[in-house]
């Protein structure tokens, strides 16, 4: 396989909680706890999971907005922050769109100034940057003459998110990180923005990391999907394989929580009870065992490996692999 455009190796981020008066080692929020994955060029990797699963922290780590506790991030095989790939150059290649379209635009800057900012950081002249900003506005479907001189509060949520996309594209990145980028939008507007993202991807040959809590949208956008639970990867695989033949009970439960869209066959049972547990003190062994219907003693003592279960398809569950000591382990029960 060719070198992945973006690769994450054993990424860990612990946020220490306030330590005691005497400097005792306090506990930590284990937001991301040993995550590794790779994205091939022009793919879209969807990342799904519930609140506290670490998907947004992963995005911020990837973007180098927070410093990882440990682990490496490689872009086209090169570690970020080395002489071969300085941080500033990495940030020209990888850009991010945030969830809150309003908070991610400076209220005192006009739309075109916000878009033109990043190119000027990378040495484009002010005049050229403004031209580029207007061309991009046009490309994301906002008529420059009408919108370039406006302030963020004068735009609707969908229009603002188009501006944010234009802003991210202004430095001509190869990878776009979309962190819940359509979650705050109305459904009718969400569809427009998703279409725009698909078109831009084709046109510019972009690679997407699409982070969302919405499984339907992730399925629609992604070629690969990664499911996170309490800071770890539960399952990763090609979209259709994962959605139609999930191997991790958490993935199955997530899919089972989708609404029925059929008044004659409504959901009658919730696949999971309770809320996702707190990432401060994740349970030992498999982190999902406290909510898993198939949990056995082995699940609370030994942490499952993220092992292959199919072509590019892996699941971190004792049931998916033979010889783990789980009574439903693959091999005994098909």
């Amino acid at each position: 396989m060719s070198t992945p455009i973006l690769e994450v190796v054993d990424l860990i981020k612990h946020f220490p909680l306030a330590t005691g008066l005497l400097g005792r080692a306090g506990s930590a929020v284990r937001a991301v706890d040993g995550v590794s994955f790779a994205v091939q060029e022009r793919e879209t990797l969807g990342i799904v999971g519930e609140s506290g699963c670490g998907k947004s922290t992963t995005a911020r780590l990837l973007m180098q907005l927070i410093v990882p506790t440990s682990g490496a991030i490689r872009y086209q095989g090169q570690t970020v922050g080395t002489k071969a790939l300085p941080l500033k150059e990495f940030r020209r290649q990888v850009q991010m769109v945030f969830q809150d379209s309003y908070a991610s635009l400076n209220p005192r800057l006009t739309v075109e100034d916000s878009i033109a900012f990043a190119p000027t950081v990378h040495g484009v002249s002010g005049d050229q940057a403004v031209r580029k900003a207007r061309a991009l506005l046009d490309r994301v479907g906002l008529e420059p003459a009408r919108f370039a001189g406006r302030y963020p509060h004068e735009l609707s949520g969908g229009q603002r998110q188009r501006v944010n996309i234009a802003r991210a594209l202004a430095v001509e990145p190869r990878v776009l990180l979309l962190d819940e980028a359509v979650s705050a939008l109305d459904k009718s507007v969400e569809a427009q923005v998703l279409n725009l993202l698909l078109d831009l991807k084709d046109e510019m040959g972009l690679t997407y990391l699409f982070i969302s809590h919405d499984l339907e949208v992730v399925r629609f956008m992604s070629t690969q999907v990664l499911v996170m639970y309490l800071g770890r990867i539960a399952e990763v695989g090609p979209t259709e394989a994962l959605y139609t033949a999930s191997r991790h009970p958490y993935t199955t439960a997530l899919l089972g929580s989708l609404l029925s869209m059929d008044p004659d066959n409504r959901r009658t049972q919730a696949p999971l009870a309770g809320d996702p547990p707190n990432p401060i003190d994740p349970p030992p062994g498999c982190r999902f065992h406290t909510r898993c219907a198939y949990a056995e003693p082995v699940c609370s003592t030994r942490e499952p490996d993220l092992g292959g279960v199919g072509l590019a398809h892996a699941a971190a569950c004792h049931m998916a692999h033979p010889g783990t000591g789980h009574s439903r382990a693959a091999g005994r029960v098909a």
Partner: peptide
């Protein structure tokens, strides 16, 4: 901690430039 300052950092700008263009006005 606003997202637009994060976005400016993510675009590769240094602290002085961010303070001048994104922070001071606000």
């Amino acid at each position: 901690t606003r997202d637009y300052v994060e976005a400016a950092r993510a675009s590769g700008a240094g602290p002085l430039r961010i303070i001048r263009t994104q922070v001071l006005g606000n």
